[in-house]
């Protein structure tokens, strides 16, 4: 049952990534790669969160996986890695936190009594900070391969021969 729910999540994560990919008008040849990348990254995020890593660490690992895989994808689907990486991490973007923070700020402008004000401020700040740090984790994770290899372009990163050979076949 556990595995079944995991597999189901996998599929939904993939569809979420593909939906954004279509919105961003990616080339058709990259669509299924984005499905796989989005699903894998999202799954890693959920696994990390299940193991008690929290949403920020989970997003970081998920985005890092997407970042590294996108380099491989770029080599055999011939598109810049960020074409794969951005739609794949968009489902992890803390959109819900961002607009909840905004809603909180709007509510704070109203006349709220003191006890409620504190609670509202708590929630707003918490949502805002989570959104900020998840975003930082995402962009750090996605650009990790570039930062670690100190290259300007994915073309200069050598993909290990084994995988290269596999792809060529």
């Amino acid at each position: 049952m556990e595995w079944f729910s995991f597999l189901e999540k996998w599929i939904w994560l993939g569809f979420a990534a593909v939906g954004f990919a279509v919105l961003f008008n990616v080339p058709v040849r990259t669509l299924w790669v984005i499905f796989v990348l989005g699903a894998l990254g999202g799954s890693l995020k959920f696994v990390t969160m299940k193991l008690g890593g929290g949403i920020i660490l989970g997003s970081f690992f998920g985005a890092m996986l997407v970042g590294f895989l996108s380099i491989y994808a770029a080599h055999f689907r011939h598109a810049p890695p960020f074409v794969f990486a951005i739609p794949a991490v968009i489902p992890m973007v803390p959109g819900a936190f961002a607009y909840r923070m905004m809603l909180g700020i709007i509510h704070l402008t109203g006349d709220v009594d003191h006890a409620l004000y504190g609670q509202l401020l708590d929630e707003t700040l918490n949502n805002g900070l989570k959104a900020l740090f998840v975003l930082m984790a995402l962009s750090l994770g996605v650009s990790a391969p570039m930062l670690l290899t100190r290259r300007e372009s994915a073309k200069q990163i050598k993909v290990p021969l084994k995988i290269d050979g596999l792809i060529r076949k």
């Binding site: 939906g19 954004f20 919105l23 961003f24 951005i86 991490v89 968009i90 973007v93 959109g95 819900a96 961002a98 607009y99 975003l135 995402l138 962009s139 996605v142």
Partner: peptide, 10 residues
């Protein structure tokens, strides 16, 4: 959620 500014923020 389809409106979230993913590209500007990332």
């Amino acid at each position: 959620l389809y409106l979230i500014p993913g590209i500007p923020l990332i």
